[in-house]
C-alpha cells in the first residue's frame, strides 16, 4: 500500500502535473522532497497499479465523442472470462468488466463501454463485439447515454 508520502504526492498531482520543463522537480520542491524520490515513488506507484498511467486525460465530449453506449451481454459463467478478455482487448472498448446479474430485470454479466462521434459509430462497435462473442451471446443490449447528470472526478484525500 502507498505510504503517507505517496498519498501526499498523489494528492498533489491528481489534478495535474505542473506543465513545466521539469515537472517532477517542481512537485518535489512543493512537497519538500527530492526530485529523484518523487520519480522513484511514481515508478513504484505505476508498477503497483495505484497509478494506472500518466498522461493526457481527454474530455470525450470536447473531442467530439458525444455518443457513448454501455453494451451489456449475457454469456455463460463458464465463458465470461475468456470472452471478457477478448472483448476487453478490442482497441475501441474503453472499459470491460464482469458484473453480477440482477434478475429478472438484468440478465447481463459482461459490460463493455464504447464511444463514438455518431450514433452509427457506436452501433457499428456494438455489432463488432456481437460478431466476436458470436453464438455464446444469450442476450444483449446497448444503453446509450442520453444525458450526463453529474460528472466529478474521483479524488483522494491527502
Amino acid at each position: 500500500m502507498p505510504d503517507d508520502t505517496d498519498r501526499r504526492l498523489l494528492a498533489a498531482v491528481q489534478a495535474g502535473l505542473p506543465l513545466v520543463r521539469e515537472p517532477y522537480r517542481a512537485v518535489a520542491e512543493r512537497l519538500g522532497l527530492d526530485a529523484a524520490d518523487v520519480m522513484a515513488r511514481l515508478e513504484r506507484l505505476l508498477a503497483s497499479g495505484a497509478v494506472r498511467r500518466i498522461g493526457a486525460v481527454p474530455n470525450h465530449y470536447r473531442l467530439g465523442l458525444i455518443h457513448n453506449g454501455m453494451t451489456v451481454w449475457d454469456v455463460a459463467d463458464a465463458e465470461v472470462d475468456r470472452l471478457g478478455a477478448a472483448v476487453g482487448a478490442l482497441d475501441f472498448v474503453t472499459h470491460c468488466y464482469r458484473r453480477p446479474r440482477a434478475l429478472p430485470l438484468w440478465p447481463y454479466n459482461l459490460f463493455a463501454m464504447v464511444h463514438g462521434r455518431t450514433a452509427d459509430e457506436i452501433d457499428d462497435k456494438r455489432a463488432a463485439i456481437a460478431r466476436l462473442i458470436g453464438d455464446a451471446c444469450r442476450a444483449s443490449d446497448m444503453l446509450p447515454s442520453t444525458r450526463i447528470l453529474k460528472k466529478t472526478g474521483l479524488r483522494i484525500g491527502a
Binding site: 498519498r7 498523489l10 491528481q14 495535474g16 503497483s48 495505484a50 497509478v51 498511467r53 486525460v57 483522494i156
Partner: peptide, 16 residues
C-alpha cells in the same frame, strides 16, 4: 480550453 480534463496521473481508487 477543456479539451483535456487534465494532464497527469490517473489513479486507481481501489488500489489506494
Amino acid at each position: 480550453v477543456g479539451i483535456l480534463s487534465r494532464f497527469g496521473p490517473m489513479l486507481d481508487a481501489e488500489r489506494l
